[in-house]
Design a protein around this nucleic acid. Sequence first.
DNA 1: ACACTAACCTGCAAGC
DNA 2: TGCTTGCAGGTTAGTG
Length: 268
Amino acid sequence: MPELPEVETTRRGISPYLIGHRIERLVVREPRLRWRIPASLPRKLARQTVRNVQRRAKYLILELDDGHLLCHLGMSGSLRIVEPASPPRKHDHYDIVLDSGKALRLHDPRRFGALIWTANPNTHALIKNLGPEPWDATAEYLHQRARGHKQSIKNFITDSRTLAGVGNIYAVEALFKAGIHPKRPAGRLSLERYQALLKAVVKVLERSIKMGGTTLRDFVSADGEPGYFRQVLSVYEREGEPCRRCQTPIRRVVLTARSTYFCPHCQH
DNA sequence: ACACTAACCTGCAAGC
DNA sequence: TGCTTGCAGGTTAGTG
């Protein structure tokens, strides 16, 4: 599921229900996620107040009185605010029950999500090697870092060590917007083209956040609503359909086992 | 250091 | 109807 805009949409949706509220208890129904939720976690979280809810790449970071909680949604996860008494569905992994009488509930059929407590997220293995958020990156940084890299520009910008939070949909959409062929070697793009690309990445992400993210199959925000960015996708999942700019049929290729869409006329 | 792959899971749609 | 296959938003551990 979720790329940066979907995680940000979730963050904005859940924040008001969490910040300043105390965790009454953590209820774990199905501990198996990417990493098993430790049996000690409910005890750790009980009676802690959530001080802030931040996002880094695709991780939600709940700042607690003592330490931080890293929440990842994996491929199929969604976090919703529910009544704790509402009957859980299949694949509802945990509830964080709050003093307000509401609960934060993770639904994640594919179990690629994660819930991890850490004293310091900045030094945590999952966080410390992440590249800059797209808003904080510069074209000079990308251009410099790409020097000598033969890998495709698409793989380069979806590498979280290069840029945080750019997944398959938005990489492909941004490359279309910037007129760059996804297979072009990253080291063979000018600084000017990196400027256009970074601008496109930021614009695509911002526009998607405004629309509540992209719902392909099952993403919903904290209040259960889907995102509407899918309706304005330029190339993603549009193989064979006419390019919105030049009418040429959109093509699909597979790069490192990921579907990659582009317009053969508009992108070079 | 880099670049690619296989793997972790379930669900759903398409094809036979 | 039912079986099989392929594919899906992410990330990592392992290989060469």
